[in-house]
Design a protein around this nucleic acid. Sequence first.
DNA 1: CAATCCCCTTGACATAAGTCAATGCTTTTT
DNA 2: AAAAAGCATTGACTTATGTCAAGGGGATTG
Lengths: 192, 192
Amino acid sequence: MYDLFFKCFREKVAISNEEEMQIRHYLMPKKLRKKQYLLQEGDPCKYIAFVEKGLLREYSVDESGNEHIFQFAPEGWTISDLFSFLTGEPATYNIDAIEDCELLLISKSAHEELLLQSPKYETYTRLQLTGAYLAMQKRITAIISLPANERYASLTALYPDLLQRVPQHMIASYMGLKPETLSRVRRKIAGS
Amino acid sequence: MYDLFFKCFREKVAISNEEEMQIRHYLMPKKLRKKQYLLQEGDPCKYIAFVEKGLLREYSVDESGNEHIFQFAPEGWTISDLFSFLTGEPATYNIDAIEDCELLLISKSAHEELLLQSPKYETYTRLQLTGAYLAMQKRITAIISLPANERYASLTALYPDLLQRVPQHMIASYMGLKPETLSRVRRKIAGS
DNA sequence: CAATCCCCTTGACATAAGTCAATGCTTTTT
DNA sequence: AAAAAGCATTGACTTATGTCAAGGGGATTG
């Protein structure tokens, strides 16, 4: 249940077994069934969730009822509404499970205590934040500089397995396209 | 010359005068004339730059020669190609001055020494990174969920002074639009 | 096993954004 | 002061994407 988390952790920062036990103490396992919410817009985001197994999505819903997927989180990823988590403000995103999930939750108080007590945890989260920042930077660059068909190509290159696990209309939403448009883009790509 | 930097610093983390002097020691003042490069694509990014005065832009150029502005940096902002800075890889962005600038540069070695020696600096950069991450998160959300005219409105609300200081075609580039399109969007907005 | 739901595709049409070209206004350069 | 360069606007047209509506296939549920 904790394997993947500490595997990912150790890829960034070396820790002893004692340190691992200390950190493990703060992690709260949780299972989530397909379609269940981890977080709903309007509620404060109380946890950072690490995905041991399964797949989640983070998305907002606009006035017209359209969903806009902001992020996918497969195994090994971390997901939360960071702004809400840090400030206590109501969340502006929903997070729910696309597949049955096994998660490790870190509460706000656990997070704060860990930052104070474990320099390794602090380093780890710093590197994680840096990585997330850089990934998002690349994503913005792709959005502002690539047309729809190339955006799709770059996504498939980056997450080849995601397309097998996620319905196509969610991929479309992630790319900021309508399902019909994505379908047509795919047809063009396939036929060339 | 260092006023704004430490003003911004102190808004996030309290420091003593001794700590300020210690940190100041690592900052390298530099002036940049309008249109001069701070960083060119292909070169490694050697510095994080804090803007004491003036205005810069970070942008990439695609195969068709179109510029895509990724970020503006007015007074009080920090700018660099963070990926290149951290990894030593060649930069994928250009950074140049839109106005005459006064900068404070932090080299890679200075950055690393500061992280080790000054917990306050670590906290400061951590908060800064978090802030930048959240800002980018909002930006992506705006891009994937707002049409062009509302994107423009939200930008003008966020950076009202930027529109006075930056040529319109750069604003267009930042929003992922062509100058002609932005001009038409503006006309519609003005006439309504 | 049938009924339902979800998802993808397709067509016809509407709207938004991009392209190309021309013009006039400023600002900068010489 | 004249020439050049940069910038914003506009028109006519093309291309990309969205909208609405219909239909079919496959999975899920009762």
